[in-house]
Simulated scan of single mutants.
Amino acid sequence: MNWRAHIEALLRAAKPASVCALDASAFELAAAALPDLTIQRYHEPDPPRCGVALGVDALNGLAASAIEQLIGRIRTYSAPRLLLVAQPACALDDAGFRALGFVVSRVDADAGTRVYDYDLDTYKSVPDWLNARFWAHPERWEP
């Protein structure tokens, strides 16, 4: 399975209410995967809210800091889930994507691309210590 088929499978499995395409290639890919869904185009001044943001060529030619800023804006204002394709010349490396909470979803060695997935609901597991067993109990305190 190549990276395009992988992204189409992820989009179909996610069944998002809306998709925001970050570039023309992403728009075509999302429209092919979800033909019954209206695909929105990402635009900077007033970005649309959507369930999933998809970028295929959006990172091409951007510096690492510009990629980080773009990802931050999308996560904050547009979508809780991002699917991004990193071409071989991408300025942000694997460690940079991991630092931003992404996981490698697919590596296509033939094309030299990597598909990164970020999902706000699953990017960080809840630590064991964060439960009621370790909370303070004010009724047990004596003055």
Score class of each variant (00 low, 15 high):
Pro80Asp: 08
Ala66Val: 09
Ser18Thr: 12
Tyr118Ile: 04
Arg106Trp: 11
Val107Pro: 02
Trp3Asp: 08
His6Phe: 13
Ser125Pro: 12
Val126Ser: 14
Arg133Trp: 07
Val115Trp: 06
Ser125Ala: 15
Ala136Thr: 12
Ala33His: 05
Ala91Thr: 11
Cys90Met: 02
Val85Ser: 06
Arg49Ile: 14
Glu142Ser: 10
Ala24Asp: 15
Tyr42Lys: 01
Gln69Lys: 02
Asp108Met: 09
Gly55Phe: 04
Arg114Tyr: 02
Ala64Phe: 00
Asn131Cys: 15
Arg49Glu: 15
Pro127Ser: 03
Asp23Ile: 01
Val56Asp: 09
Ala17Lys: 12
Thr113Asp: 10
Ala21Thr: 04
Val52Asp: 03
Gly96Leu: 07
Ala32Cys: 11
Arg114Leu: 10
Asp119Pro: 09
Asp108Ala: 02
Pro143Met: 01
Cys20Pro: 01
Arg114Val: 13
Ser65Lys: 01
Leu120Val: 02
Pro16Ser: 01
Leu82Asp: 07
Arg140Asp: 11
Gln69Pro: 00
Arg133Phe: 10
Ala13Asn: 10
Ile71Trp: 03
Glu68Met: 11
Ala21Asp: 03
Asp117Glu: 13
Thr76Ile: 00
Glu44Pro: 00
Ala13Cys: 08
Ser78Lys: 06
Arg73Ala: 14
Leu84Trp: 08
Asp117Cys: 04
Asn131Thr: 15
Pro80Met: 00
Cys90Tyr: 04
Leu84Asn: 00
Asn60Arg: 12
Pro35Glu: 09
Thr38Ala: 10
Cys50Arg: 03
Leu70Met: 15
Ile74Pro: 07
His137Asn: 15
Thr76Arg: 12
Cys50Lys: 03
Ala5Ile: 09
Pro127His: 04
Ala33Ser: 13
Asp36Tyr: 04
Asp23Arg: 01
Leu34Gln: 08
Ala33Trp: 01
Asp110Gly: 00
Ser125Gln: 15
Ala91Gln: 12
Ala136Leu: 14
Phe27Arg: 06
Pro138Trp: 03
Asn2Arg: 10
Ala111His: 12
Phe102Ile: 10
Arg133Glu: 14
Met1Phe: 02
